[in-house]
Design a protein around this nucleic acid. Structure first.
Lengths: 335, 335
DNA sequence: TTGTAGGCGTTATCAG
DNA sequence: CTGATAACGCCTACAA
C-alpha cells in the first residue's frame, strides 16, 4: 500500500508537505505541489479513509436505515426507487451509502450504536417502525438524521404529500361524477391516517356523504387482502361506482376479482391506485393513480442531510413535503 | 466520545488491559475482565471502527457494485430481492454493506480505487457491464470479489442457472404439445446467450425444428419492445402457439397486444415468462414462469465472499450455479 | 496477570 | 513555503 510517506521519500520532501499539497492547501509552492501530485499519480497513491477519519472525525459516509417492516421492503418499487435515488444523490456529493442494522460482528447493537461505530456522518431513516425505541434513540442522538414519511420533533423530514395525493384522487373521482366511492386502505400507519383524513375532509368539503361501509382496511402491497375487500364491495346491494386501492400493486388483486365477476374496468366499475409504479402505466387500461415522487424524495432527503452535516449551525429542522402527480390513466369512467 | 483510555482511567488499569479484556483475550483475570466490561457498558463505550481498521486492516465492510446498466436497476425485482438478501446475509455474519461507485468527494475514482479507499474487505459484483475495464481491474485486484451472473477466470461466481431455466421451459412447452414456439429474448448479454443456447440445444434434442423467424430480440424489463415483438408474431401467417418472454414484466407488454387482438391466454395463445417475480403469481391466469432464486443467489454470493475474506488460503475460485424452479401457472395450454 | 511503548496513515499546529 | 512533531483510538509485541 502506497502511503504519504512513500511519496514524501520519493519526492524528497516531508510528510506534511505531501499532505498539504494533496489537499490543495495554498501554502505550498506550485512546483512542489505539482511534483507531489505527479508522484502520487505515478505511485498509485490512495488515501486511507480509516486514517483520515480517525483524524478528522468525518467519514463521507451516510447510513441508511431501511428495515423491511412489511417484509416487502426493497421489493416495493416506491422504496427501491427511493434507495436508488438516495444512492445517486449521495454519490454525486461524494458520500457513500452504508446500510445500518442491528448486528455487527458478534455484538448486538442498537441502530445508534451501529451508526456511531461506523462513524456515519448522518443517517437517512426510511421504511422502519418509527415507534421503535431504537429508532427514536437514533433520532434524538447527536448524529444528524433525516426521516422519510414520518415526522419527529427535532429532525428534518421529507414527506410524500399524502394529503395532496388523496385530495387529488378524491376530487378527480368526484369531478367525474362518482358519488359512491369505496376506499381500501393500508395498515394503520401515519401515512394511512393522513390519506384517510384527507379523504374524509375532501369528501366533506365537496359535500359528499361518507358511507363507513365503503371503507375497509387491507395492507399495503398485499393484493390478496385487497382482493377480499373488493369482493365484499362488489357484493353490496348498492355497490360503489369506484374503488380506491391502497397502492397500484394491491390493485392487481382487485382486478382479478373484478374480471372474475365478468365486470369491466372502467365501464362497470372505476378504480384508482396509488404510487404510480412502472406497472401502473403498462397495464391496459392504463391505471389512474397518484404518482409519488420517490426519486425527488430520496434526493431531497440526502440534500437536507448533507446540509445538516456540513452546516449544522445553519440547518434547522424542516418538514418538506413532496407532491406527486395524478396520472389520469383510463380507469375512472365519466358518469 | 468514550475511548479505551477513559475506561482504563475509570478502572485504574492500563490501556492494553482494557483492550484485551474487551476483546476476550484470556490472559486477563476474570475479575478484571468483568470489571472492565461493566465499566465499558456503564460509560457507553463503543469501539471506533476507523481506529480499529487502521490497525487491523479489516473493516467488516463489504462493497456492492450495482450499477443500473439497464436503468431499471434496483427497480427490477430480481436485483432488489438479491440486494435484500445480500444485505441480510452480510449482516448476519457481522458485515456491513456499502455501495461502490465511481466518485467520492471531488475525486473521480475507479471502482477498485473506491473499494480500496473504503477498505472494503471484499466486493460483490452484480448487475454491471462486465466488459467495463474498471470492473475487470477490480476483479483482477487483490481485493476478494464474487460476481453474480457472469464468470471471470480467477474469481468465484454465482450464477442463476439460465441453462436449466430455459431447458425446463422448453421441455415443458414441448410436453404440452407445442411445436411452434416463439422466443423474445433480451439484449445480447452472456445471460441471453446462455438462455438461447439452451433453448436451441433443447429444441434439437427434442427434435423440434427451429424457425429463426420465431426468434426476436427485445430488451429485459421493457414491455414496449416485447409488445412490438408480440405484434409481429401475431401477424405471421403461421402464428406460434406459444411465446416465451424475456421476463415476467415484459410479458405485460405482450399481454396488452394479445388482449387487444381479442385473443385469450392460454386458449388462443400460450405464454411463458421468466423470473417469477411477485407479479407473475398475482396475475390471472397465473403466469407460467421460471422463478430465479435471487434470494439464494445473494446469500451464496456473500457466503462465498466471506469465506474468501476469512480463509483466503482455503478458498478457491468456484462457479456455483443456483437453479430456480418452473412455476407451472396457467398460461400454457395443453394442445 | 498486567503495563509500557510503538505504530497504523493522516492531519494540524507551530516553529523555522 | 516547508518540516518537525504530536495527536486521533486502537492493537500488540514485549517487558515487568
Amino acid at each position: 500500500m502506497v502511503t504519504l510517506k512513500d511519496i514524501s521519500e520519493y519526492c524528497g520532501v516531508s510528510n506534511s508537505t505531501v499532505s498539504k499539497a494533496l489537499n490543495g492547501q495554498k501554502d505550498i509552492s506550485k512546483q512542489t505541489a505539482q511534483r507531489v501530485r505527479d508522484a502520487a499519480q505515478k505511485l498509485g497513491y490512495l488515501p486511507n479513509s480509516a486514517a483520515r477519519s480517525l483524524k478528522t472525525n468525518k467519514t463521507l459516509n451516510i447510513g441508511v436505515l431501511f428495515v423491511d417492516k412489511t417484509s416487502s421492503g426493497l421489493r416495493h418499487e416506491y422504496f427501491s426507487g427511493m434507495l436508488e435515488s438516495i444512492k445517486s444523490a449521495a454519490e454525486s456529493k461524494g458520500y457513500d451509502i452504508t446500510f445500518i442494522s442491528r448486528n455487527l460482528g458478534e455484538r448486538q447493537m442498537s441502530f445508534y450504536e451501529h451508526a456511531k461505530y461506523r462513524g456515519c456522518d448522518g443517517v437517512v431513516i426510511a421504511s422502519v417502525d418509527f415507534s421503535n425505541p431504537d429508532v427514536i434513540e437514533l433520532v434524538n442522538s447527536e448524529i444528524p438524521t433525516v426521516t422519510v414519511d414520518y415526522v419527529y420533533d427535532r429532525c428534518s423530514s421529507v414527506l410524500s404529500d399524502n394529503l395532496d395525493g388523496m385530495k387529488q384522487i378524491a376530487e378527480y373521482v368526484f369531478s367525474k361524477g362518482h358519488r359512491r366511492v369505496a376506499v381500501i386502505h393500508g395498515e394503520n400507519t401515519s401515512v394511512t391516517q393522513k390519506r384517510m383524513a384527507s379523504f374524509r375532509s375532501t369528501c366533506k368539503r365537496l359535500g359528499l356523504i361518507l358511507d363507513e361501509k365503503l371503507i375497509k382496511e387491507a395492507r399495503y402491497h398485499d393484493p390478496k387482502l385487497s382482493a377480499l375487500a373488493t369482493r365484499e364491495f362488489l357484493d353490496l346491494d348498492d355497490r360503489p361506482t369506484c374503488i380506491i386501492y391502497p397502492d397500484d400493486f394491491s390493485f392487481i388483486g382487485g382486478k382479478n376479482i373484478i374480471e372474475q365477476r365478468g365486470l369491466k374496468v372502467p365501464d362497470d366499475i372505476s378504480v384508482i391506485g396509488y404510487d404510480g409504479i412502472l406497472l401502473s402505466q403498462i397495464l391496459r387500461p392504463k391505471l389512474t393513480t397518484y404518482k409519488q415522487n420517490s426519486v425527488e424524495i430520496g434526493k431531497i432527503a440526502v440534500q437536507k442531510l448533507i446540509e445538516q452535516i456540513e452546516e449544522p449551525s445553519l440547518s434547522i429542522p424542516e418538514i418538506i413535503s413532496v407532491t406527486g402527480k395524478l396520472l389520469k390513466g383510463e380507469t375512472v369512467k365519466e358518469l
